[in-house]
Simulated assay, not measured.
Amino acid sequence: MTEKTKREAPVSYRPPEHLREEFRARVEKSGLSVSGFITASIFGSAVPRQSRRPPLEKQELARILAECIRLRGALEALPPEARDPALLEEAVRTLQEIRNAVMLAKGRSP
Score class of each variant (00 low, 15 high):
Met1Asn: 13
Met1Lys: 13
Glu3Arg: 06
Lys4Glu: 15
Thr5Phe: 14
Thr5Cys: 10
Thr5Val: 15
Thr5Ile: 14
Lys6Asn: 14
Arg7Lys: 14
Glu8Tyr: 11
Glu8Asp: 10
Glu8Phe: 11
Ala9Asn: 13
Ala9Gln: 12
Ala9Ile: 06
Val11Gly: 07
Ser12Gln: 10
Tyr13Ser: 09
Pro15Cys: 11
Pro15Met: 10
Leu19Thr: 12
Leu19Lys: 15
Leu19Asn: 09
Leu19Phe: 13
Arg20Asp: 07
Arg20Tyr: 04
Glu21Ala: 12
Glu22Leu: 08
Glu22Ile: 04
Phe23Val: 05
Phe23Lys: 08
Val27Cys: 06
Val27Met: 09
Glu28Ala: 05
Glu28Ser: 02
Glu28Thr: 00
Glu28Lys: 04
Lys29Leu: 07
Lys29Arg: 12
Lys29Met: 03
Lys29Glu: 10
Ser30Asn: 04
Leu32Val: 03
Ser33Trp: 00
Ser33His: 07
Ser33Thr: 09
Val34Asp: 13
Val34Trp: 13
Ser35Gln: 09
Ser35Cys: 05
Gly36Ser: 07
Gly36Met: 09
Gly36Lys: 03
Phe37Gly: 05
Phe37Trp: 15
Ile38Glu: 07
Thr39Cys: 08
Thr39Asn: 09
Thr39Gly: 06
Ala40Ser: 08
Ser41Pro: 01
Phe43Lys: 07
Gly44Leu: 09
Gly44Asp: 12
Gly44Tyr: 12
Ala46Asn: 06
Ala46Asp: 08
Ala46Thr: 05
Val47Trp: 11
Val47Cys: 05
Pro48His: 04
Pro48Trp: 00
Gln50Glu: 10
Gln50Leu: 12
Gln50Phe: 05
Gln50Trp: 07
Gln50Arg: 11
Gln50Thr: 09
Ser51Met: 02
Ser51Phe: 01
Ser51Lys: 06
Arg52Lys: 12
Arg53Pro: 02
Arg53Gly: 12
Pro54Tyr: 00
Leu56Gln: 04
Leu56Cys: 01
Leu56Lys: 05
Leu56Gly: 01
Glu57Gly: 01
Lys58Leu: 09
Lys58Asn: 14
Gln59Leu: 03
Gln59Gly: 04
Gln59Ile: 00
Glu60Cys: 04
Glu60Met: 07
Leu61Trp: 14
Leu61Glu: 01
Ala62Thr: 06
Arg63Gln: 03
Ile64Asp: 01
Ala66Trp: 00
Ala66Leu: 11
Ala66Ile: 04
Ala66Lys: 11
Glu67Phe: 13
Ile69Pro: 01
Arg72Asn: 15
Gly73His: 08
Ala74Gly: 07
Glu76His: 15
Ala77Gly: 09
Ala77Tyr: 10
Leu78Trp: 15
Leu78Val: 06
Leu78Asp: 14
Pro79Trp: 11
Pro80Gln: 15
Pro80Leu: 14
Ala82His: 15
Ala82Arg: 15
Arg83Tyr: 05
Asp84Met: 03
Asp84Gln: 12
Ala86Glu: 15
Ala86Gly: 06
Ala86Gln: 15
Leu87Val: 06
Leu87Cys: 12
Leu87Asp: 14
Glu89Asp: 08
Glu89Cys: 04
Glu89Met: 08
Glu90Asp: 00
Ala91Gly: 04
Ala91Phe: 06
Arg93Met: 10
Leu95Asn: 12
Gln96Val: 01
Gln96Lys: 13
Glu97Ser: 07
Glu97Phe: 07
Arg99Tyr: 06
Arg99Pro: 00
Arg99Met: 05
Asn100Glu: 02
Asn100Met: 03
Asn100Tyr: 03
Ala101Met: 04
Val102Ser: 01
Leu104Ile: 00
Leu104His: 01
Ala105Tyr: 03
Lys106Asp: 02
Ser109Thr: 02
Pro110Phe: 09
